[in-house]
């Protein structure tokens, strides 16, 4: 019995020892597990801190880049506006130059035609063409000064009979005074102007320097022309000078031709 009892006691102690060892091992395992979990947590925290820092840095870079791009966009928009303004200026300037070019073409052709002949009748015809086609007058007259008696007489007209135009004495009436003063006259109100043979709407003295040789008087414009443009005033100025020299030159030429013909006639009589 005692042997059996001591046998049980030995086995119980063995079991108790084995159990204690098992308990110690489990305790160690739990501690290791705790340590590892703590380590995992540490690593996770470390990893989390690292990600957040990198994101913030990246965001800051991106925000700065966005600002740069927005500034760049604003600069481009400002430049586009500047270029558009420049384009508008160029377009306006182009229109102005085109207009000046047209005006110069008209003036050049008028001048070219006026000096293209020495024939008195042709010169008068060219003056008429310029006044009709380039200025747009429908009724007008061209009077020349007779230096001997100081009278102005119509040598050409359009839209009216020459007999309708009475001679004008230098210094008398609007036409005579315009010739005497040498200054062009333009009626103040084109719309209310009433046709009057002695009071034209426009009166331009034809003069070589200060010497007036005649006058252009306009009474009516073409139906489609209601007022004068800048180029018209330039054409009037051109006519005042160039038409006068062209008429004067043609007269001198025809006089010299006539004299030459007379002298030639005498020479022929003498030599025959």
């Amino acid at each position: 019995m005692l042997e059996e009892e001591s046998g049980y006691r030995g086995k119980a102690e063995e079991f108790l020892q084995a159990f204690k060892k098992g308990a110690e091992f489990t305790h160690e395992l739990l501690k290791e597990n705790e340590r590892l979990r703590f380590r995992v947590l540490e690593l996770e925290n470390a990893l989390g801190d690292h990600s957040a820092g990198a994101g913030a840095e990246q965001s800051s870079v991106l925000i700065s880049r966005i600002k740069e791009l927005e500034q760049e966009k604003q600069d481009i928009l400002d430049r586009i506006r500047q270029v558009e303004d420049e384009n508008q200026d160029f377009a306006n300037r182009y229109i102005e130059i085109e207009s000046e070019n047209n005006n110069l073409a008209n003036l050049y052709i008028a001048s070219y035609q006026l000096h293209s002949t020495l024939d008195f009748k042709e010169v008068l015809q060219i003056i008429m063409e310029i006044v009709i086609n380039l200025i747009g007058a429908e009724e007008f007259s061209l009077m020349l000064l007779d230096e001997k008696n100081g009278d102005l007489r119509a040598v050409a007209c359009e839209g009216m009979d020459r007999e309708e135009i009475p001679p004008v004495t230098l210094g008398s009436g609007l036409i005579g005074q315009t010739v005497q003063s040498g200054e062009s006259y333009f009626t103040e109100n084109m719309e209310t102007y009433q046709r009057d043979i002695l009071n034209p709407m426009v009166c331009v003295p034809l003069k070589i320097k200060d010497h007036v040789i005649g006058v252009l008087s306009i009474y009516k414009l073409l139906i489609q022309k209601d007022k004068f443009a800048q180029v018209d005033y330039e054409l009037f100025t051109l006519l005042a000078g160039h038409a006068a020299t062209a008429i004067f030159g043609a007269r001198l030429y025809s006089d010299s031709e006539r004299r030459l013909s007379t002298i030639q006639g005498f020479l022929d009589l003498i030599t025959k």
């Binding site: 070219y112 293209s116 086609n133 380039l134």
Partner: peptide, 12 residues
């Protein structure tokens, strides 16, 4: 018929 006009049209 006008030489002036012919020249102006031609010029343009």
């Amino acid at each position: 018929d006008s030489p002036t006009m012919r020249q102006l049209i031609s010029f343009a």
